[in-house]
Amino acid sequence: RSRTTFTAEQLEELEKAFERTHYPDIYTREELAQRTKLTEARVQVWFSNRRARWRK
């Protein structure tokens, strides 16, 4: 699998969701996946990476 490139629109959606919760449940992730046209797995990994960046 090659590296996922996120569009500005996708990042906006993901960042907005991250402001609400750092640990979205499966329903939230599924909804985000549909809205951003990404897979739920990509959304999950993005949140994991985003939390790592947030901790630094």
Score class of each variant (00 low, 15 high):
Ala52Thr: 07
Trp46Cys: 04
Gln34Thr: 09
Tyr23Met: 05
Arg55Asn: 04
Leu11Arg: 08
Arg20Leu: 11
Leu11Glu: 14
Arg55Cys: 12
Ala41Leu: 06
Glu30Ala: 12
Thr21Asp: 13
Val43Met: 03
Glu31Asp: 06
Ala41Trp: 09
Glu12Phe: 11
Thr28His: 03
Asn49Phe: 07
Asp25Val: 00
Tyr23Phe: 12
Thr36Glu: 01
Lys37Val: 03
Arg29Met: 13
Glu9Pro: 11
Gln44Ala: 15
Thr39His: 04
Leu32Thr: 03
Thr21Tyr: 03
Ala41Ile: 00
Ala8Phe: 09
Ser48Gln: 07
Asn49Ser: 09
Ile26Asp: 14
Leu38Ser: 13
Phe6Asp: 04
Arg1Met: 15
Pro24Leu: 06
Arg1Gln: 05
Asn49Glu: 12
Glu19Gly: 08
His22Lys: 15
Arg1Val: 05
Ser2Thr: 11
Thr21Phe: 05
Arg42Gly: 13
Arg1Phe: 13
Leu38Arg: 02
Arg53Gly: 12
Glu15Trp: 01
Gln44Arg: 09
Gln34Arg: 11
Leu32Cys: 01
Pro24Lys: 03
Glu31Thr: 15
Leu38Val: 08
Tyr27Glu: 13
Ala41Ser: 13
Phe6Gly: 03
Ala52Tyr: 07
Phe6Gln: 02
Glu13Ala: 10
Arg42Asn: 15
Phe47Ile: 02
Arg53Tyr: 12
Ala52Pro: 00
Ala41Phe: 05
Trp54Phe: 14
Glu15Arg: 05
Gln44Pro: 00
Glu15Met: 03
Leu11Val: 09
Phe6Arg: 05
Thr28Arg: 07
Thr39Tyr: 00
Glu19Gln: 14
Arg1Lys: 06
Glu13Asp: 04
Arg29Trp: 05
Glu15Ile: 03
Ala52Met: 09
Asp25Phe: 03
Asp25Ala: 04
Ala41Pro: 06
Thr21Pro: 01
Ala33Gly: 03
Arg50Cys: 02
Gln10Ile: 15
Arg42Trp: 11
Ala8Leu: 10
Leu38Thr: 12
Tyr23Ala: 08
Leu11Asp: 11
Glu9Gln: 08
Phe18Tyr: 07
Arg53Cys: 10
Arg53Met: 15
Arg35Glu: 04
Thr21His: 02
Leu11Gly: 03
Thr4Gly: 06
Phe47Pro: 03
Trp46Tyr: 06
Lys16His: 12
Ser48Cys: 09
Arg35Ser: 07
Thr7Pro: 03
Leu11Phe: 06
Trp46Arg: 02
Arg20Ala: 12
Leu14Thr: 00
Arg29Thr: 09
Trp54Cys: 14
Ile26Ser: 14
Thr39Asp: 12
Leu32Gln: 03
